[in-house]
Design a protein around this nucleic acid. Structure first.
Lengths: 198, 198
DNA sequence: GACGAACTTGACGCAAGCGTCACCTGGTGT
DNA sequence: ACACCAGGTGACGCTTGCGTCAAGTTCGTC
């Protein structure tokens, strides 16, 4: 070979990616439980055996998909919250980052929507939407800094993520698609909550 | 036979019930997609063929389960909202009815939690938690009556249901179990929202 | 108490998925 | 140009689930 990567390397990367894309679509369409390794393989132009050169079983593929998504979604949302200077921004920018992610990647939305329950029980709560855990930490930090009133951050984080997920799903299926309208609503809801608690 | 029902009738009712209970547990444990009719049958003391005397396939069992749950949950929540005389009561009593339902019936919670995505796509949105649709109608009625300010009832209903579902799930897995704390939080959130919008 | 209808039973034929492995194919390095 | 071997291929043996149906059992009725 000459530069960058040899054909060997490129094929490997492409195969792995093809399997993950196919798996994502199959899991979205059939649900993880009903999907078979063969359903996935059939959506690629690879042979059965090849699948097992890349992943030991279908669970590993889901794991890889979820990891990828979780890293991306969490990074975006947290970056947006960290950058915010006002309370309004903390709430609005976090939700906006999340909603924009949903809009950019509908295939991932479909995957999460269909398989959230499986993912939850299989991995014991990673990355529902963008991480209740991290939001709770951010809320606690904000409470400690006196930026928001004292409250049950655990339940509040659940409320914010739950509302965000559901509003996000509703948003993407409405016509016309209006991210700012969704951001405005959830922001009003939770800023109103902080005002009322305080 | 003499009174009430003959043995025939009683056995039929018991068999049907046994299948539904077994199915609920299997769907909760394995997920709907991965569950087989045989997994269900094995949890009863019935034979394979008997299953098919009661339901044509596993989808019908899920349908029957969801119908039962939906009717019950919706009835409770709506009754609570109808009975409320104050705005505070409208919000708090609706959530309380829902949370109490979750506490009373943990097996159903498990079923919904694991299979919400499947149920959503299979039946095209019936009974997520307690019905976004009905909540939206109630919100619109309240707006028309001037009890709450004008807003996007569709998204608000999504936010309320999403928050309710997530907070409810969190609530049931915390120790000690505290329904009123959960009710107080979501009530504050949404009353604060109405104040802020108005 | 005996007959018939209603229901239960589980073995059966068939279909599909699983993970493997002996065999090729073609990229790589000399 | 050639030999080597990483890695793709798909048929194979095995397991499991499907829905059916002929045979057996039990309840209700006269």
């Amino acid at each position: 070979m000459s530069v960058a990567e040899g054909k060997r390397e490129r094929t490997k990367a492409a195969n792995r990616e093809a399997i993950m894309v196919a798996a994502r679509d199959v899991f979205s369409a059939l649900g993880y439980g009903a999907a078979s390794v063969r359903d996935i393989v059939r959506r690629t132009d690879l042979a059965t055996g090849t699948f097992y050169n890349y992943f030991p079983d279908k669970e590993s593929v889901l794991r890889a998909l979820v990891d990828e998504i979780a890293v991306e979604a969490r990074a975006r949302v947290r970056a947006a919250r960290m950058a915010a200077t006002t309370l309004d921004g903390f709430v609005a920018d976090g939700f906006r980052a999340y909603f924009e992610f949903l809009v950019e990647d509908p295939a991932t939305v479909a995957l999460m929507r269909r398989n959230a329950g499986t993912i939850r029980t299989m991995f014991d709560e990673p990355a529902l939407g963008a991480g209740i855990e991290e939001l709770r930490e951010d809320l606690e930090a904000a409470m400690a800094a006196g930026r928001i009133p004292q409250h049950d951050a655990d339940l509040m984080a659940a409320a914010m993520v739950g509302a965000g997920v559901e509003v996000g799903l509703r948003m993407v299926e409405r016509e016309p698609l209006d991210v700012e309208r969704a951001v405005a609503l959830v922001t009003n809801v939770f800023l109103g909550a902080f005002e009322r608690i305080g």
